[in-house]
């Protein structure tokens, strides 16, 4: 979804000054420079569809330093680095899948909040249904047993 016309206008104010742009691209590494040009002053991707994908992806990636936060919410240094990584990969035209694969290759499945559906994770995904089924069976059996029992309206047979 990267259009050339977009890139031509998606320059940060600093990049408009040629000398600054030179310094910037020298100071930061090659891949980073491209991403930097695709960001606005607030650090958001100028391409709205990329920014939307960025937000969805980073919400599903765990910040490993502060394990119950996503990298979208966390201010940890590592979370910032990983957000930058996601931005760069989006700008480079990588698919969501490629980005998630990149992260799980390095940090393991744990980095994702929603585990993928595969044999290993079948128990996690199946657990709610198993519980429901189990509960249903128990209720059914108890109810049937109760209905077979005589009603305790005779005080003599009461407990």
């Amino acid at each position: 979804m990267k259009r050339e016309s977009d890139l031509a206008v998606t320059r940060s104010p600093a990049a408009l000054l040629p000398s600054m742009a030179m310094l910037l691209s020298l100071a930061i590494s090659f891949g980073c420079a491209e991403a930097a040009e695709s960001l606005d002053a607030n650090g958001q991707l100028l391409d709205v569809s990329l920014q939307t994908r960025f937000e969805t992806i980073t919400k599903d990636l765990r910040c490993l330093v502060c394990q119950n936060e996503s990298i979208a919410d966390s201010n940890a240094d590592l979370a910032m680095d990983l957000r930058r990584q996601v931005q760069e990969m989006l700008v480079a035209g990588k698919s969501d899948e490629a980005i998630f694969d990149f992260m799980t290759d390095r940090y393991g499945e744990f980095v994702r909040f929603s585990p993928p559906l595969e044999p290993k994770t079948l128990l996690i995904w199946g657990a709610p249904f198993i519980m429901l089924l189990l509960g249903g069976v128990i209720i059914f059996r108890v109810a049937r047993q109760r209905s077979r029992m005589p009603l305790n309206d005779d005080p003599a047979t009461g407990p």
Binding site: S29, V65, D81
Partner: peptide, 13 residues
């Protein structure tokens, strides 16, 4: 300095 190599190694602390 920018932690790129560390990301490749899966460093989180």
């Amino acid at each position: 300095a920018d932690g790129r190599a560390a990301i490749n190694w899966g460093v989180y602390g």
